[in-house]
Design a protein around this nucleic acid. Structure first.
Length: 209
DNA sequence: CACCAGATCCTCT
DNA sequence: GAGGATCTGGTGG
């Protein structure tokens, strides 16, 4: 038997709280991706895990930078639903992953912008290309999706279930390393650029940009 | 149905 | 630091 960490999903109640608070507290949590593996020899096969080191909050109706600011559309429908689900959307060739927060009909979410690789080795989607530094495997919202093979099929995925191919956990068996949280303006947007809705683990070498 | 802007990333200068 | 890639949803005629 291995001494692998126990990845225990965060419950929906974690997400059913003010978005800024969720965005801060997601730092240090773990995104767990279970890939399909044929002839798996142990429980860890196909398991890719990254520690969340950078997030951004999108505040819904009152936030011009949020997709849901203009109201409900087909694309943003999931934002109006239950907290703890995945809001994935496509931008050019890329996919971006958000977590839905707050109660139903409150279209808020948190964007996952960067992960620190924890388990699973080099993402296979990086291989074959120019060698990429470990710190650059998942240091951007689209890069982490590509690394973990996350796309529109994960739209609406339940991030609170260990049975899901994609969920968010804390390491119930691990030792948490203390860290400081830094707050800054969001990246890559053109509206509400002054809002300090970006949260990072201070000093992490795995941040975007 | 045409247009456009966009929560990005990579390559080159 | 700039530019391009060439996708998709949303809007307006």
């Amino acid at each position: 038997m291995s001494s692998a960490p126990l990845w225990q999903p965060l419950p929906a109640s974690f997400y059913n709280r003010p978005t800024l608070r969720v965005a801060r507290e997601l730092l240090g949590m773990y995104l767990v991706r279970r890939m399909n593996v044929t002839a798996a020899t142990d429980a860890d096969a196909g398991l890719y895990v990254g520690k969340i080191v950078e997030t951004e909050a999108y505040m819904g109706a009152g936030d011009p930078a949020a997709h849901s600011a203009a109201g409900r559309t087909k694309r943003t429908a999931i934002l109006f639903g239950e907290p703890g689900r995945a809001y994935v959307y496509q931008m050019r060739h890329h996919y971006l992953l958000n977590v839905v927060t707050e109660p139903v009909d409150t279209p808020t979410c948190v964007l996952l912008r960067a992960l620190e690789p924890v388990q699973g080795g080099e993402p296979r989607h990086q291989t074959g290309r120019k060698p990429v530094k470990r710190t650059h495997w998942m240091n951007g919202p689209a890069k982490l999706c590509r690394a973990l093979d996350i796309d529109l099929t994960h739209y609406g995925a339940d991030l609170t279930s260990a049975a899901s191919p994609l969920f968010i956990a804390h390491d119930a068996a691990g030792v948490a390393e203390p860290f400081e949280i830094e707050t800054s303006p969001r990246i890559g947007i053109s509206k509400a650029v002054d809002k300090p809705y970006r949260f990072t683990i201070k000093g992490s070498p795995y941040l975007s940009r």
